[in-house]
């Protein structure tokens, strides 16, 4: 998916839990997520905290999209 879209030149931030797969298949801007069934959330947190967590990950993705890169980069 990532490569298909990025091949047209549009930058993609890939938010995913299993960073090694993303690396293997060749995503360029990789943003680690929480867990497979809830990449951008954590049901153990209260709503407000969960929102903050999600916002942090999305901000991280935006940081990735505004950063010039030459090679695969994981935005921790």
């Amino acid at each position: 998916m990532v490569k298909g879209i990025e091949s047209t030149g549009i930058p993609v931030a890939h938010i995913c839990t299993i960073v090694p797969i993303s690396k293997t298949v060749g995503a360029n801007r990789i943003v680690p997520a929480v867990a497979i069934p809830h990449p951008l959330g954590d049901p153990k947190l209260v709503e407000e905290e969960e929102y903050k967590l999600r916002r942090k990950i999305v901000n991280n993705a935006l940081k990735a999209l505004t950063t010039e890169i030459d090679d695969q980069t994981v935005f921790q």
Binding site: M1, T8, I10, P11, A13, I15, T17, L40
Partner: peptide
Amino acid sequence: AEKLRQDGVDAVILTS
């Protein structure tokens, strides 16, 4: 991607 390009999308957040 083709649709996004036509619609002038600048960047994509893709979640897995």
